[in-house]
Design a protein around this nucleic acid. Structure first.
Lengths: 320, 320
DNA sequence: CGGGTAAATGCTCATTTTGAGCATATATCG
DNA sequence: CGATATATGCTCAAAATGAGCATTTACCCG
């Protein structure tokens, strides 16, 4: 027999939010400056400690975000609770925590918003600033060559053949060398691999070939958020949380491409959206798109009641 | 500017595990007795507070589970961090926490194991003991009629037409009245709906038509675990964590059916498993299955390196 | 004003992937 | 031996997917 309620352990609990938006074909994340960080790691996610006054975790998060950025959140979803900052096999870990063996947890959230008015000293950044190799819309990013070369070197430097094979397998699996190609959802696995290989500033790398660093473990949280969002748009109509009330199919496609980092076949994309019943026509068109005027569409909320898994199953294709 | 590290908030942090297995065609969960609970809620999941001595959250969890049940864990995955036990709109909530405004978090995990030897005072229970309406292998469970009748009554009793419609929509969406049929992944949504409708003992219901209750919010955790597992088997080969080293395709199918709660078309199931390259033949057969002897198969680990999303996309069908 | 360019749309077609079933093989049981 | 039960092989039609071709309708440029 044991007690139903855990006894006191009194760890520190923080709340952090990866607040994502998509404006002008570019996926964005809301960042704030963070004091007391090493050179080049002064950017971070809005975050703050859980306080007794917070009625719930999520309400506490919203409070912190509003206080720090002025942004009010719509769609919010819990991502993961990070607990052990020094767990990385590489040892290094992120900034030490001088609280004598006390745990420092951080409950990370994903939030999707429409508006993009940077308030206070917060700023919207393209999320490919932090993960440049994740953007394949213009083809395989050139920086990937240098990156994978370093990864291969790291694999070669493994202490034993067993470990060398394991590392090689992971590289192939996450960066797509093996039979499988690129899987856009494995954002976190790629970041963790780069971390373990010591190729990110957070793990002691001297340069930021693998992207701009962030404070503490915030880049890990952001990677988790991107991976989750990239997966989720396939079976839930969450993209529409990022879209304005009316939009063209072309705009919708460019947002999806921006999020997933890959290009899609235009005609098939519209067919998919149409047959899923995700949108409906308005009687307006817009000529702002460049060529023939496009019809403005709106999200059909009813689809939530109709289909079991409404989303945009992205194909693997790439086309124009 | 703000501090990188959250200031002290000192909430209580607990760890809990939904440890699942599948033996003899029945999906199981490992439970322990919990003291100090109301009548009928003395069953719970292995759990304990996070302690400073725990190197990581997951290690802390493993330690508690071994101490309480003797079971050592293989596959472990974080599920969700529950923070606010009294958040339910219904007010009631689960057992009060007498710690003066202090938060009590609980980080819940999903674990998959093979062996099923109940140690100490822990016990393996069919998980349909807690969610009888989730088992549709023998067709639509009769108890569902009574349950949905009560749900409908609850919807009718809504304070206003707006809310009534909302409740009706949710019932249709989760229990499958609308165009969409039954979605086996919505375990948590169904439980939460029943909770809000006051139909589970945790929310004050006098009977357990909606299944056996559990201590504090453990049934919510279990529901989260089942939903996650049911979803995950479709795109990751996690079922094999539950299977013995060699097995027949029939056994594999029955385990998948037990987990998902629905029956599958046998020939199509084998075709799927085969063409996904998930298993390979051994040169042994077994005659223990009743009819013609079946070939024993084993999981092909290499598939993890080959396919992007190896899993068992369950069809919606039901057949023999 | 006519041609060039850029989307937006409409449709077609070959492949794959599903969902369902029929038919056959090979044990055990009474 | 015949009934029964599960394992396995194969077929077929319908639906979903991946790739393109062809048209429509703006705007821009000279």
């Amino acid at each position: 027999m044991r007690e139903a309620e855990p006894r006191a352990a009194a760890p520190l609990v923080g709340l952090a939010a990866a607040i994502l938006a998509a404006t002008l074909d570019e996926p964005r994340v809301l960042t704030v400056p963070v004091a007391g960080q090493p050179e080049g790691r002064g950017e971070g996610l809005p975050a703050g400690p859980l306080e007794p006054a917070h009625p719930t975790l999520e309400r506490g998060l919203r409070a912190w975000v509003e206080r720090q950025t002025g942004q009010s959140l719509g769609y919010v979803e819990q991502l993961y609770t990070f607990g052990d900052r020094n767990r990385r096999p590489g040892g290094e870990g992120a900034g030490g925590k001088g609280n004598g063996g006390q745990h420092a947890l951080s409950v990370a959230y994903l939030a999707l918003v429409r508006e993009a008015r940077p308030a206070a000293d917060s700023a919207w950044q393209s999320w490919y600033r932090y993960f440049p190799y994740e953007d394949r819309r213009a083809g395989r990013p050139p920086s990937l060559d240098a990156l994978t070369a370093r990864l291969e070197a790291w694999a070669e430097a493994a202490p034993n053949p067993e470990e060398r094979r394991r590392r090689g397998d992971r590289i192939g699996l996450t960066f797509g060398a093996a039979g499988s190609g690129w899987n856009e959802e494995r954002v976190l696995e790629r970041y963790e691999l780069l971390f373990e290989a010591g190729l990110v500033p957070e793990a002691g790398a001297p340069d930021s070939l693998a992207g701009q660093a962030m404070a503490v473990d915030h880049r890990r949280m952001l990677a988790t958020a991107l991976g989750r969002l990239r997966g989720k748009i396939k079976y839930r109509p969450v993209v529409f949380e990022l879209m304005p009330p009316v939009f063209t199919l072309g705009q919708l496609q460019r947002v999806v491409e921006a999020l997933s980092g890959i290009l899609l076949h235009k005609q098939n994309f519209r067919r998919l959206v149409a047959q899923q019943g995700l949108v409906e026509e308005t009687d307006a068109v817009t000529a702002e798109t460049g060529g023939r005027p496009a019809r403005l569409m709106r999200f059909r909320r009813e689809v939530l009641l109709e289909r079991p898994a409404p989303g945009l199953r992205l194909p693997s294709s790439r086309a124009g």
